Computed example of a mutant assay.
Amino acid sequence: MTPRWPGAVRPLLVAFTVLAVVHLGALLAGASLVDHLTKPALMPVLAVYVLARGGPVLLAGALLFGCGGDTFLQLGGHGGGVVFLVGMGSFAAGHVCYLLLCGRHGSPPGGRARTGAFAGGYALALIATVALLWSDLPADLRIPVAGYSLLLTAMAFGAVRAGLWAAAGGLLFLLSDTLIASGIAHWPQLPAPQFWIMLTYTVAQFALAEGVLRAAAERQGAGRRSTRPPQTVTAEAASRP
């Protein structure tokens, strides 16, 4: 995969890292102005980093949908309402992008038994989480949260196709959104709950992006090797010691 803007790759990665550290530090310090300014900037910077590396435009789109979700949830909070549902819908659109990307660039995790184990584990986690949260969620959010949870779980399972980085990202995204849902249900929370939500979310988005980039590069490299003329491959093999 050829970088679009090679000179910008490292500075953008540094910028994203610094922005994430500042944002997380602001959450711990209670600096709400810094928190509100840095949160919507995280995913656009990561999206430009993806484009600089030559990544798929759809991957940048998934991250920008995440920015939309961040912004609407910041405006509407986590307590429900129309703004919250719009934010959740934006995240859902990002999950659809990830599903398409992992299906396009990934490959099955290997073996029917392993695939079944992943599918069974995620299905069990979905059923258990929705069942436990259901009665504690506001009535108007039960169906939307259950539908969103189904899509999120499907994304996390689909991310396994794109390798270890993406699989870890899908799992962390699932954890982050479960922390949000537990807050809506008024379950006991960890100290500084927004810090843990954003830590797992930020790492999840980076890991998903990195996983898709690696899977796309590997698929592109395999395609190039398969299209080379046979005599070129034979000549290369003959020249090896």
Rank of each mutant, 00 (worst) to 15 (best):
Y49R: 02
A168Y: 00
G111V: 14
L150K: 09
E218K: 08
E236N: 02
G169V: 02
A204V: 14
D140I: 12
P138D: 13
A215H: 15
A217N: 02
G30I: 08
D136L: 03
A41R: 00
W196H: 11
D140Q: 11
A207T: 00
L175A: 14
G169Y: 02
A20P: 03
V82A: 13
L24V: 12
T38I: 08
G68E: 08
G68Q: 10
V83Y: 00
P3G: 09
C102H: 08
A113Q: 07
F118L: 14
G94V: 13
P108A: 02
A117P: 09
T115A: 06
V86S: 01
T234N: 05
L174C: 08
L59D: 06
H36K: 11
L164N: 15
C97E: 06
R240Y: 11
G30R: 04
D35V: 01
A216F: 10
A60T: 07
A117Q: 09
I197V: 14
A168L: 12
S107C: 00
Q194N: 08
V130I: 09
L164W: 15
A128M: 06
F157V: 01
G110Y: 01
A29H: 04
W187G: 11
Y201H: 05
G223D: 11
A47E: 00
L59A: 03
L42S: 10
A60V: 04
M1L: 11
L58Y: 12
S182F: 04
A139T: 14
L172R: 15
A139F: 01
G55F: 10
L37M: 09
L172Q: 15
L37W: 04
H23P: 07
A139C: 01
G79N: 09
L12T: 14
G81Q: 11
L19A: 14
T178Y: 00
A156P: 13
G121I: 02
